[in-house]
Design a protein around this nucleic acid. Structure first.
Length: 667
DNA sequence: CTAGGGTTAG
């Protein structure tokens, strides 16, 4: 042996024990040094050491060294197979993990064990490889590993991920001793598959059976309390968190905070935040977003300042929420500030931020900027298209919306239900029958027509186009038992709009008979139908029905319909008294209804009162001046009529220009 | 060595 090499050699037993200790990513450089030492010591020929080195590299997440060494191994231990697969799953490469698994099976060089299956099953569920997952499940049954708790838990999780809740429940029911992990998977799985009630039921069963919950339990059950707005159970969980010492976990605290937010308990949420001494960016963002979704955008922006003052930087999620707040406040100034901030933070090319920016500019009525941001986004995702579409419709740029939708199809971007929810109102604005038939055919082809909200919007579109026949056809497609209050209201409004009062009223009673409880919107539609068709008695009795039987608190538009009804019947004083005695504040519409009636019945005294109110409440509407002039002319007061007409011209000059169109250039 | 968890646009 060469004496000079003595200091640089190392015994293979030493290597083995060192390698065993280097089993985490932060030992990568040590592993590399040891690797070099093994080579210079001539120990690489030892297959045992090579195997150890490969697995250590796998545990250090060094894919290329691990796989190079692993591929050359003459004999592979089960441990090394498993470690390779786990490395790939942990590195977010489940596909490669499955390739290793397939190689293992086909080469006949290894038999999967109870450690292999959970890794493989996890890879299947991450790839949504449902069929393969079932196959692996079958293999576990054949080999008897399906009785292993870890295997069962991973199977349960996989079935939940792919949406097979019944299969998951079956796995759970067959477990001899489900652990807290099994219960947690069941709870969060039901929640993620939108069975929130079931999630709560499982939780209470778990508590009844005396299974000790852990942090994950609380974090799994709290979102279910949130969507169900079940603050009672939420408070119980809160108490449990304090009692069992889970309060120290920031994730639990954030989940609790979000539960209060989702239940609309903003005061409690705020108190909770104020009482926390450790707050992370998620804590703040949860409350900021809470203010936004609970309609208090102003406080969201204020809270952002507070957060920054406490030294916490907003993240991508915070910015999207805050941009939404700016849209709600129609505050272009704040929105632009946030846009600039997002650019500085290099967040502006994140899809969620881009989408939020498009949406914010649209809500602030700046369609050009909205479109400009959209042009810079990646056009592959549906979300930015939806945002710019809904923005166009929001700003009444219906033609642009339809044009953009066609472009979207030309570029093979797949529309989803939000796309249609944004787009279809554009067709209602256009009121173009040919276009309506076009989109109708398209919806049939894509199978979107079975969706109730889509059908309801189509009813509205045909109604706006003046085609009651088509509207009714669409209405009839929906089976009676599936018809909801929205589609009923749409068809009632359609008939009402075109003066078919009797039909509207008849449909209203059909709806009641079908077991649907009319709401304030339905009553608005049917009352409007009555006033439009002059069905005075019918309208009054329906109004009575609304107050007495259905206990609907009337809004100003209900009163407007009644004023219109009474007015048409010549009962002008009754109408006037109703306005004066109703328990809510009047608006321009109700006085407009009275003014219209006064013109028909040539009542100057009340007409002047009504007109004065409309001028006050709606000074830019020239129609009211025209009505008053018409009234004066009808009773022969020509000079007064002339004077009012002159006022129209003055008002007309002050009128704002109509919305400008946005140029949709070729992309 | 293996299984379960929170905030996000339209």
């Amino acid at each position: 042996m060469n004496k000079g090499n003595r200091f640089f050699t190392i015994a293979s037993s030493q290597c083995e024990s060192l390698l065993r200790n280097f089993s985490a990513p932060n030992f990568l450089s040590e592993t590399k040094k040891l690797h070099a030492l093994i080579i210079t010591s001539g120990l690489l020929s030892s297959s045992q050491l090579c195997s150890n080195l490969a697995t250590t590299y796998a545990q250090c997440h060094h894919v290329s060294y691990a796989s190079q060494l692993f591929d050359k191994l003459p004999k592979r231990s089960l441990f090394s197979w498993n470690t390779m697969m786990r490395m790939y799953v942990q590195m977010g490469r489940p596909n490669d993990a499955l390739n290793v698994f397939v190689e293992m099976i086909h080469s006949g060089r290894g038999r999967p064990d109870n450690f292999t299956y959970p890794i493989v099953i996890k890879a299947c569920s991450e790839l949504l490889f449902f069929d393969m997952g079932i196959g692996v499940h079958g293999q576990t049954v054949k080999s008897g590993f399906d009785l292993d708790t870890f295997v069962q838990n991973s199977l349960l999780a996989m079935y939940m991920v792919v949406g097979e809740t019944e299969e998951a429940q079956l796995v759970f029911d067959l477990m001899v001793e489900p652990t807290v992990v099994s219960w947690n998977s069941l709870i969060s799985g039901y929640f993620r598959n939108s069975y929130a009630e079931e999630a709560l039921r499982v939780y209470s069963r778990m508590m009844d059976e005396g299974v000790g919950p852990d942090c994950a339990t609380l974090v799994s059950v709290l979102p279910a309390c949130g969507v169900l707005k079940n603050v009672e159970v939420g408070r119980e969980v809160h108490a449990l968190a304090l009692e069992r010492g889970f309060w120290g976990n920031v994730v639990v605290r954030n989940a609790l905070l979000d539960m209060y937010v989702k239940c609309g308990q903003m005061k409690e949420a705020r108190l909770l935040l104020n009482g926390m001494n450790e707050k992370d960016v998620v804590t703040w963002t949860t409350l900021i977003n809470g203010y936004v979704v609970n309609g208090d955008a102003k406080n969201a922006l204020i809270l952002c300042r507070t957060m920054q003052l406490e030294g916490v930087k907003p993240n991508l999620v915070s910015v999207t929420s805050l941009l939404s707040a700016c849209g709600d406040l129609v505050s272009l100034r704040h929105g632009k500030c946030l846009h600039a901030w997002a650019i500085r933070q290099n967040l502006e090319s994140e899809v969620v931020v881009e989408t939020a920016l498009v949406d914010m500019y649209a809500k602030c009525s700046d369609s050009s900027l909205s479109y400009k941001v959209f042009m810079k986004t990646s056009k592959k995702r549906t979300a930015p298209w939806n945002a710019v579409l809904s923005g166009f419709v929001h700003n009444k740029l219906a033609r642009n919306a339809v044009q953009l939708f066609k472009q979207m199809l030309a570029e093979n971007v797949r529309p989803d239900s939000p796309t249609l929810n944004s787009l279809l109102p554009a067709y209602a604005i256009l009121a173009d029958l040919k276009q309506a038939i076009n989109i109708h055919c398209y919806l049939i082809r894509l199978g979107f027509l079975c969706k109730l909200e889509v059908a309801s919007m189509l009813v509205d579109i045909y109604s706006k186009c003046g085609s009651l026949g088509y509207a009714h056809q669409v209405f009839d497609i929906i089976p009676p038992k599936d018809k909801d209050i929205i589609i009923w209201s749409a068809i009632i409004a359609a008939y009402g709009k075109h003066g078919h009062g009797e039909m509207a009223v008849s449909l209203f009673y059909q709806m009641v008979q079908s077991g649907e409880k009319p709401n304030e919107v339905t009553f608005t539609s049917v009352l409007h139908a009555c006033s439009h068709a002059g069905l005075v008695d019918e309208g009054l009795s329906l109004f009575n029905l609304m107050l007495k039987k259905y206990q609907v608190i009337p809004r100003v538009d209900h009163y407007t319909c009644i004023v219109d009804l009474l007015g048409r019947a010549g009962r002008l004083n009754d109408a006037y008294n109703l306005i004066r005695t109703m328990p809510i504040t009047h608006n321009h519409a109700i006085w407009g209804a009275l003014l219209g009636a006064c013109v028909i019945h040539e009542n100057v005294e009340l007409g002047e009162i009504a007109a004065r109110w409309t001028f006050e409440l709606e000074p830019e509407n020239t129609g009211n001046y025209v009505l008053l002039a018409k009234l004066y002319a009808a009773v022969g007061r020509w000079r007064d009529a002339e004077m009012v007409r002159d006022m129209v011209n003055e008002v007309g000059l002050r009128k704002l220009p109509a919305h400008s169109s946005v140029e949709v250039s070729n992309m």
